[in-house]
Design a binder for these strands. Structure first.
Lengths: 144, 144
DNA sequence: ATTACAAACGCAAATAATTTGCAATTAGTG
DNA sequence: CACTAATTGCAAATTATTTGCGTTTGTAAT
């Protein structure tokens, strides 16, 4: 069953979180909702036809991440990747250490783990989000 | 029960993985094994009294990570952190989004999850490592 | 010990990634 | 329509990481 992220009302989504529904931000969300994997800032710029100023992009992504519309994922490369959260099922990733191939992983044990994590710490009272990434060498890269 | 990472024979550990046991690398491992939390490259340099060349440090850490002696962790800041693996129990982290406070988390469901992850993908045949980090606002930061 | 070779080092410099400041523009509210 | 705060777009600064290369140094094999 395909997801219907493209049917999300992005202007409303933005306004609901206190952000402004500018044309730039709305089309950024549209762009992200068409992607099936996390993009670098560079890649987003390219997909947008270079029409987005880099700084503006960084700021929009940061704002979106703050309110949970997108999330930032780190794949142990030295740059961040972003993917949309709104309209997508919660998931994680498996990443090839050689070629950067990224695949979604639909396994998450978070519900069961949250309690024990919070039970262990005295410094945190709640968990806002979590990241879980698996790393390996993909089958293509293994064969040299 | 305190861990005894300081009793590890680092020269032997290095040689076993095919790396050279240079004085610099051995003391880098000693330094890391005294830390209870992941350090940035800058922080490592500072702790080492600035005597380590930055490039050398980057290269050592990369080599160590490649062979699994240390691991790189990404906390959604824009720089990597490194922590020693050798001699430490497997663990994850919970990170404050405001102040960068980091705490270890001793929960890991990996054993149970690995199979289902590999069952889902056609591109990967094994998982080399994984990262799991929890994010929230620590109690200190919550109170403004 | 001595040698030989690859690994590791250190320094300069390049590149990449992210952030800051500020003036101009614009969405949302009343 | 007017007001205000959010957003934008540059320029420029910072921060993070990488590359190249000549020199040094562990290590394994004489």
């Amino acid at each position: 069953m395909k997801e219907k992220a493209h049917k999300i009302n992005f202007p409303a989504l933005l306004r609901n979180t206190g952000l402004k529904a500018t044309p730039g931000r709305v089309s950024l969300l549209k762009l992200l909702s068409k992607e099936r994997k996390p993009l670098t800032v560079e890649a987003i710029k390219k997909k947008a036809g270079g029409k987005i100023d880099t700084v503006t992009l960084y700021r929009a992504l940061e704002d979106f991440a703050d309110v949970g519309i997108v999330r930032r994922v780190d794949f142990e490369h030295s740059h961040a990747h972003y993917e949309i959260v709104a309209g997508r099922k919660h998931h994680h990733h498996i990443i090839c250490k050689k070629c950067e191939k990224v695949e979604d992983v639909d396994v998450c044990e978070f519900e069961g783990v949250e309690k024990s994590v919070l039970g262990q710490t005295r410094n945190f009272s709640s968990i806002m989000n979590h990241s879980l990434e698996f790393f390996g060498i993909c089958n293509q890269c293994v064969n040299k």
